[in-house]
Simulated scan of single mutants.
Amino acid sequence: MLLIDRDVAGAQEFVKETISDLLQNKVDMSNLVITKALTKESYDAKQAHVELAARMKKRDAGSAPALGDRVAYVIVKGAGGSKNYEKSEDPIYVLENNIPIDTKYYLDNQLAKPLGRIFEPILGEKKAQSLLTGEHTRSISVAAPTMGGLMKFAKKTQTCMGCKKPLVSTSEKEGAVCENCRPRFGELYQKTLSRVSDLEVRFARLWTQCQRCQGSVHNNVICSSRDCPIFYMRMKAKKDVEDAGKELVRFDNDVAAW
């Protein structure tokens, strides 16, 4: 946009939209994965990928990275004052447990300096810094983790698929809608069904892409390359399909109850 189109305003808007998407957890995890080679088990200073490899070994020694492997990780939210090496986590583990990403880390440590080097000669230091602050940075979304911390004491409550009201009565809590939204049952079911269909199509396309990479569209995908962005897209798409399928089951429970 800057070098070819010379569109300075468009480039600024693109950066603001990207930062906004990052802070609202709309950026695909495959763009946030960092990989480093595990060349030795200890360093003079603690390293994020080495500490993660040690934690993964405690969880499951069979699947943990070994010396010579590349360790893929993302930086997740941690307790106040946590070091970055304490906040590194396996991307698949993060997906499976819905652990919130530390989006501020990526903004401050991965984007801020490169954006400054690109925009400061064009806009000046003050205007370039304004790309990192302002209205587009005020909306922040944090995923609700499914394990660890206070979640061990939390009790999960289903909410209505229409108005998002908690379903607490015995007749409602296993279903999809509350009494007030029951007239919209068909509309909400069709909307959820359409969403499931779209997610299944996305997963099927990613699956086929991986099959082609393997060299056959007739065999199951066995690739687990942690350096490949499609791998994480496929795993995320698979989880999205499973979660959306659970929402459809709630509609079935409603029909059975009636």
Rank of each mutant, 00 (worst) to 15 (best):
M1I: 03
L3I: 04
I4R: 07
A9C: 01
A11F: 00
E13W: 05
E17M: 10
T18P: 01
D21E: 11
K26C: 08
M29N: 06
S30D: 14
S30W: 03
S42C: 03
R59S: 04
D60H: 02
A61C: 04
V76K: 06
V76T: 15
K77E: 15
G78W: 11
G78L: 06
A79P: 06
K83Q: 15
N84L: 11
N97A: 06
I99M: 08
T103R: 10
T103H: 09
A112P: 04
I118S: 07
E120T: 15
K126Y: 05
K126H: 09
Q129C: 02
S130G: 03
L132C: 03
H136G: 01
R138Q: 15
S139G: 02
V142D: 10
A143P: 01
K155N: 13
K156V: 11
T159C: 12
T159F: 05
C160H: 08
M161W: 05
K164C: 05
K165H: 12
P166R: 03
T170Q: 14
E174D: 14
E174W: 06
G175H: 08
A176F: 00
V177A: 05
V177D: 04
C178H: 05
R182Q: 14
P183V: 01
Y189V: 04
L193D: 15
F203C: 10
A204S: 15
R205M: 13
T208I: 12
C210S: 14
R212T: 05
R212C: 07
G215K: 07
S225H: 08
P229M: 05
E247F: 04
L248T: 09
F251C: 09
A256L: 11
